[in-house]
Design a protein around this nucleic acid. Structure first.
Length: 402
DNA sequence: TCTGGGGTCCTAGGACCC
DNA sequence: TCTGGGGTCCTAGGACCC
């Protein structure tokens, strides 16, 4: 029996994704410092990063650091298309792919040894395939846990591969500064530093009660588990979204009530359209505001019933906005956003049949679902919930519409 | 040219229920 | 009538991630 020295979790992360797509599509940009974005840096090429430029930095500051940087407006359609092709490569590698964002995913490759070799070999092949088929550099971390794989891919950048061998995990982990931990951002790092905690080893050595006083109970237990290399999170497929929203910056000038209402309408329209496309509904409307001093605030209202209906969401969003109007005019609002949370993913199952047979029986409705999705689309549990939803209270409305 | 747009999870108080 | 414990939902805010 061979000794297992490699974990089976891959974390694959495209390098400077937006900037790499631009350099791929325009050879004159290759080898040069480029910034994708404008007012704010969405992505910087490695040549630009060498000057200290990074994502989310203000455009003005970036140009001070590197006056000869080339600014490229973003082309989101190209990034979505490139991402789709990269995820095709992921899915050709293993069925167990958990997408984390447009440019990043975890892949579970355990059980593929006989078929495709050791995880490190699979990772190397994956990097070659992304380069050959999509033309983009991607870094991959290989480890036994998600946390270590995530850290490894970050340390492998740019365009690299890093394997954390199973027998070297603690040696690798304990040397790292606390900032490397997935979930430690600026605020937590400051709290830890104030408590004279700088390395992962120091978190591991800390009495958990002391750590609770520094960062709070949930973060303390989470950080200490990770510092002791306990990470039971598995690669999961088919995780559904819990909220969906849209926002837009509206500039610093004066905004009339009519301006604000137009912006609100556009946001609600975009969000509810996305919900309907996904066959989902939301149960809470959240209004987001940002003010001139960059402070943020939200107000929310739980709806009587989940919906994806534009008018229902707009009515609620308007009421929330009306309550904030004085503050908006006093403080100067620079961003407005609408989010639907409490997303319900039985939406498709429950609502399609009611649309199909709005006056029919429950059994007619179930037959309509089975005809569309196959005989196993509705099992005994959902049958019960459909029946009780139908018998209790007012009849559910038609499928969400405009 | 001050600072985009899309998400996740946790905390905490109050209302309400058993 | 008083007291206690346990739970969920709603709302607002904060931290973090890409």
């Amino acid at each position: 029996l061979a000794t297992v020295t490699e974990g089976t979790v891959l974390h694959a992360d495209l390098d400077s994704f937006f900037a790499s797509v631009e350099q791929r599509d325009d050879p004159s940009l290759r080898g040069r410092p480029i910034i994708v974005g404008g007012g704010v840096v969405l992505a910087a090429s490695y040549e630009a990063k060498a000057f200290g430029i990074h994502g989310a930095m203000g455009g003005r500051q970036a140009m001070r650091l590197c006056p000869r940087a080339i600014v490229v407006p973003p082309r989101f359609d190209a990034y979505v298309e490139a991402s789709r092709r990269v995820f095709d490569v992921f899915h050709d590698t293993t069925p167990f792919v958990e997408g984390m964002s447009i440019d990043e995913a975890f892949l579970e490759v355990g059980g593929l040894r006989k078929l495709r070799g050791e995880p490190s070999a699979i990772a190397a092949a994956l990097r070659r395939a992304v380069r050959e088929r999509v033309g983009l550099p991607i870094s991959v971390g290989v480890a036994r846990t998600k946390h270590l794989a995530k850290i490894a891919s970050a340390m492998a950048k740019p365009d690299g591969l890093l394997v954390v061998p199973v027998e070297g995990e603690l040696r690798f982990l304990h040397r790292l500064p606390v900032e490397r931990i997935w979930g430690v951002g600026p605020a937590t790092a400051i709290k830890l530093h104030d408590a004279r905690i700088h390395t992962v080893a120091q978190i591991a050595a800390q009495d958990v009660r002391d750590l609770v006083r520094v960062v709070g109970p949930a973060a303390a237990h989470h950080l200490q588990a990770l510092a002791h290399n306990r990470d039971v999170r598995r690669v999961r497929t088919g995780v559904s979204r819990r909220s969906t929203g849209s926002q837009s910056a509206i500039g610093r000038g004066h905004h009339t009530d009519a301006d604000l209402d137009r912006a609100l309408q556009a946001l609600v329209d975009r969000v509810t359209r996305r919900l309907r496309t996904g066959g989902r509904t939301g149960s809470t409307v959240v209004l987001r505001l940002r003010f001139g001093d960059f402070s943020r605030s939200t107000s929310s209202h739980a709806l009587a019933r989940p919906t994806a209906n534009t008018q229902a969401v707009l009515d609620t969003a308007r009421r929330l906005l009306a309550q904030r109007l004085p503050e908006i005019h006093d403080r100067g609002c620079t961003l407005i956003g609408v989010t639907l949370s409490g997303l319900d993913d039985h939406g498709t199952q429950l609502m399609l049949p009611f649309e199909a047979t709005s006056d029919g029986s429950v059994d007619d409705a179930l037959d309509a679902v089975r005809a569309k999705f196959g005989s196993k689309a509705i099992g005994p549990a959902s049958l019960t919930s459909v029946r009780s939803a139908r018998s209790a209270g007012p009849r559910p409305r038609r499928a969400p519409d405009h």
